[in-house]
Each structure stands twice: as C-alpha cells, then as structure tokens.
Design a protein around this nucleic acid. Structure first.
Length: 550
RNA sequence: GCGUGCGUAGCUCAAUGGAUAGAGCACCUGACUACGGAUCAGGAGGUUGGGGGUUCGAGUCCCUUCGCGCGCACCA
C-alpha cells in the first residue's frame, strides 16, 4: 500500500463518516485529500495524519473526539493492522507487513515509470534558464541554473507536462558591441577597452577569427566581422559546455530575430492603443507599478528607439503565439527587479500575468580557507562550468548544485572542490545504486530469482523503513514539481540510500554458504531491485548517472 | 533609504504549520576475517540571530530589531 492509496482510503472514510452523520463538518471544510505523513518516530506507527486536528475548528468538536470516530473506520481499511490516537489528536496507523511489502513488487513492475504521474498532462511549459550572454564562458552561477533548470524540466516531464527548454540568446545590444570591440582590440594587439572583456578566451577567439579571415583587420568594418564570427564561436563553446554537462536546449532563441522582422515595432504600435501604456516626457511607459514594480518603465525611448523591455514584451508574445500555457523564467538574484516588469509585460498584452512565473535563485559564492573569494579573472578565481566539470566530473557537479534550495546562497569551497570531492553525497547515493547491482549479481550467482514473492516476509524493521521511503518517492516528485524545487528529489534519494545501506547491513539477499534458496531470499531480491530502480529513476531526474559498479 | 532573499550543530546545508529540529563533512568510540568498509552502530555537538504576536501546536506565518547577499536607468 502506498501513502497515496492510504490517503485515498482515509479520505473515503472521512466522507462516509460525514454522510453517516457521525461528524458534522461543513462541506467546504473537507479536504479533497487527507494528507498522510511519515512520523519521525517509529513509535508513532508507519503513517500518521493530523486530519482530526484540522477539522476540530470547523466541526466545533474536540480533535480527539473526531479522531475516535475516524479511528474505528480506519481500522476497517484492508491492510491497516492498527490505529492509535496520540497526543492532541494524531491518528497513527500501522500497516500489515504484507500490505506494506506489496510495494516492492509494484515498483519493479512499474520500472522507469515509478514516480511518474499525469497531473501536469496537457500543460505546455516554456522553461527558460541560463540564457547567459555570449560574451564569455558560463560561470558558476549559470552552471547552477543549468543543473537546477534541467532537473526541473525533467521533473515536470515526469509529471506529464510538455516542456520546452529555452535559452534566450542575447545577440543584440551593447554588451555584444563591447565584446566585439574587445576581440578587435586583442587582434590588433591593443589592450582591452575600458569597459570591455579581458581574459584568455578573448585572445583565443580573436586569434581564431583572424586565422579564418586573415584579411579581417584590413576590411571595411572589422568590428562587425569580429562581432558576427566571435559571437558564433563563443556561442558554440557555450553549447558544447552545456552539452558536456548533460543539458541540451530545445530552442535557442535569438533576441535579434525579434527586431529583424519588425515584430517589436509592430507590437509597440499595437500597445500604444492598450490601457497599459501611456505617453509622458516624449517617451512611452509601461504601468509596471500595477504589478509591484517600484516605478513605471520606459518601453519606447524619447528618441523613438525601443527600450530593452520592449524586447521582453515581444518575446513573451512570441512564446504565447507558440502555444505555451506557462512561461517560466529562471533568473539570478541580480535580476529580481525583473519579476514585476515581466508580469506587467504579460498584462500589457492583455494576457493573464499568471502566465508568467519568475523563479529567482540566489547567488553562488566562492570560499577559500573559510573566506569569501570574489570572482576575478585577474586573481584566477573565475570558476566556469568547464572548470567545475574538469575537477569533479559532471555527476558530482550537477548533483552538488541541484541538492540545495535555490532560495539559499550557496558557498562553494575551492579547496573542497579540488581536494576532497568524494565528500559529495552523490557518491553515497551512487554507491547505494552500485550496491543494489552487486547484490543482484550475487543473488543471480546463488540461484536467487524473482520468481515468487511473499510480501509478508519483508517484516524486518529496516524493511519497513525502506518500504516507507520508497513509497514516499512519488509524493516527493509531485511536491518538487509543484514547488519548483528539484533539491527535494536529491535529498530524498539520500534518505533512500541511507535506508538501503542499513537494510543491507541487516538483511541478506543471497543465502549463506550451502543454505537453500528460500522465498525470503527471492522476496528480498524484489526489494533490492525496487531500490535500484527508484535510485536510478531519481538520479536520472537530476541528470546524474546510476553506475552498476564504482 | 526603498524593495527582495537569507540567518538552523565547528563547517556546508535539510526540515508541504505537527510529536524528541535532522543529514553529510570534521571530531571521539566501536562492528560480522560471509552479498563491495565509498558501509553500518554509538557518542559529542542547538536558546533555529534577538524580542514580541497569531495558533491546540511556530525554524516555518505576522510585527519589530540586528547582521549578510542582491537589486533599485529614457543601459542592455
């Protein structure tokens, strides 16, 4: 029995009790679904619910009274062996070993689909992340969004959503001009411009452009030549790093394309007629304060040119025209001022601002010897995606960035990265998976096969614990999707790995020595394989491999 | 100044308003000469920055205060 099944059964009991007049609760106070939790202490049973506490106020009855009414009904649920009322009114539930054990078989039979769901089916999501300007390699901050964003996309997909990963490729504007001037300066043997870009990669790209076009410095507009080809090369390098990192975008959207076909101008003309845009001081303004911005923003400058935000509006319209129901933007904390204006951009189109969702993630800090280190090219403390992958590998890099909540700043210690990478919990999880493979190999060698299955044989304390955390996995995925928090998946895998290691320590799968193979051996193999399956499923959502040997 | 996020064990971080606040690392003590010791068992380590409030119940919600990060352009 899974927690979802138990939850559904309790919900039905509650409805029956109300229908039978045993409880007087207004219909609107009844939850659609009763939440079932795993108690921290084993003394509180396998599962617990606080439904009686929640209904006490609307029903106007003491919580323990409600608990008493429900407990007799819950005890009738097949598979439930015991129901206790504890504390202020918690209902603690103990399952039959057999009912709990069935899960092992169900997981193996579900295979890669265990944990999947169709609750987001029919939702077409545009998930935009990274979107770093092609003026340099991807830094640690962008690397974090690559790991988190790609995982989130995979988690959405596991819940049935239709997800497009999108990279907004900014190739229009003066950041790019600075980049082009920097390349030109480097090729001409001059120092980098005042506000330009330095660093070895500029020299490399400039040299590559020159190698391909020996005459470029003497051409009519060398800066334009460096711009066009430099951006191309830089972008190819970024794509290669991302690919190496296991992140491939479905759409690389060029900002330039919004301007080339006059879409922005056309759009601006339309917007002048909408109620969300007004003229003042010779410019046109968007009423972004309506959406929480601290001031309105200029859309068309007094010189008649489009301001940056005009591109955002056009881009949003473009996404909606492509059929996306929900446009999610993952941005760093240095862009949190954008939330209101992106929502205002949607509203300016006459669209629902809730079509826009902005996820703000906090920064990655570098630490060395306990002290913060500023990223500085000069000091050699810029850490790029490639650097990170080179030192710890893609698996450890992705895992260590995805296992933290995006709401927290995270500190990455350069010393830990370079010297003690095996401190990363990814190895704990991967090792557990490799161990399930080793156990399966040994079982096969001993003649243990998944022929018979006796759920009641899974009655050891570590087995009850292991089954419980495996049962929580689908709920964790669902919550990770709805709260947009991939780190929950990683944390839960660590819990499963821990429970597995403890079980391994206590319960053998293969028989010892000359002992005969029993149904217990076979049943435990189901459980072992179920764990391997769940760990593999979860790791794949994080873009991390599940090795059979380490 | 305004906005926003954060503050939890020595360090890095968890904890859909639930019961005794948890892991990893570091430290200490142990484990089957039987499926891989990248493991397991145990110990020590906390006034969840401080102070109020709401609630049957607060690390979590509200107010206040302190500290840190980030942002506050007719730049893109």
């Amino acid at each position: 029995m899974t927690p979802e099944e138990l939850s559904a059964a309790i919900t039905a009991c509650l409805k029956d009790a109300v229908d039978a007049g045993e409880l007087n609760v207004p219909a609107e106070a009844l939850p659609k679904e009763v939440r079932v939790e795993r108690p921290k202490s084993r003394e509180h049973g396998d599962w617990a619910t606080n439904i009686a506490l929640q209904l006490a106020k609307p029903a106007g009855v003491a919580p323990r009274k409600i608990a008493e009414v429900l407990s007799t009904r819950l005890a009738q649920i097949p598979g439930v062996s015991q129901v206790d009322i504890a504390g202020p009114g918690f209902l603690n539930i103990v399952l039959d070993a057999a009912a709990a054990g069935e899960l092992a078989k169900a997981i193996v039979e579900a295979g890669a689909s265990y944990g999947s769901n169709s609750q987001m089916a029919g939702t077409k999501i545009n998930l935009e992340f990274v979107s770093a300007n092609p003026t340099g390699p991807i830094h640690l901050g962008g690397t974090r969004w690559a790991a988190v964003g790609d995982s989130l996309a995979r988690i959405f997909q596991s819940q049935g959503a239709d997800v497009t990963r999108e990279y907004y490729f900014n190739d229009h504007g003066n950041q790019i001009d600075k980049f082009a001037r920097s390349l030109l300066a480097s090729a001409a043997g001059q120092p980098a411009p005042e506000d330009g870009y330095g660093g070895a990669y500029i020299e490399d790209i400039a040299a590559e452009v020159v190698a391909k076009n020996p005459e470029i410095l003497a051409s009519e507009d060398p800066q334009e030549g460096f711009r066009a080809q430099g951006v191309e090369l830089m972008f190819a390098a970024i794509r290669a790093s991302l690919h190496e990192f296991g992140v491939d975008f479905d759409v690389y959207f060029h900002e330039n394309s919004l301007f080339e076909d006059g879409a922005v101008e056309k759009l601006l003309e339309q917007l002048k007629g909408s109620g969300n845009i007004y003229a003042k001081d010779g410019a046109w303004w968007l009423n972004s304060t309506e959406y929480g911005d601290d001031k309105d923003r200029v859309v068309i400058k007094s010189d008649g040119n489009a301001a940056y935000i005009a591109g955002d509006i056009a881009y949003f319209k473009n996404k909606r025209d492509r059929g996306f129901d929900l446009c999610i933007y993952m941005l760093g904390a240095d862009h949190h001022g954008y939330v209101a204006r992106l929502k205002a951009a949607a509203a300016a189109m006459g669209d629902d601002a809730n079509r826009v969702e902005v996820l703000i993630g906090q920064m990655v800090n570098l630490v060395q010897e306990g002290k913060p280190v500023r990223m500085s090219k000069r000091a050699g403390t810029v850490v790029t995606m490639e650097d990170l992958v080179e030192v710890v590998g893609t698996d450890a890099a992705r895992y260590s960035l995805a296992r933290f909540s995006s709401d927290s700043n995270i500190d990455i210690d350069l010393d830990v990265l370079t010297k003690r990478s095996n401190e990363n919990p990814v190895f704990y999880v991967q090792y557990a998976h490799a161990r399930t493979s080793a156990v399966a190999r040994n079982a096969a060698a001993a003649g243990v096969e998944r022929t018979s299955f006796d759920a009641a044989a899974l009655n050891h304390a570590t087995e009850s614990e292991l089954l419980a955390v495996l049962g929580q996995y689908p709920g964790v995925l669902s919550q990770a999707a709805s709260s947009r928090e991939p780190h929950r998946v990683a944390r839960h895998l660590e819990v499963i790995a821990g429970a597995y290691h403890r079980w391994y320590d206590a319960c053998r799968v293969a028989p010892m020595g000359e002992e005969a193979v029993t149904d217990t051996n076979r049943t435990r193999l189901w459980l072992n394989d179920a764990v391997g399956q769940v760990l593999a499923n979860g790791l794949s959502l994080l873009g991390v491999t599940a090795p059979e040997r380490m």
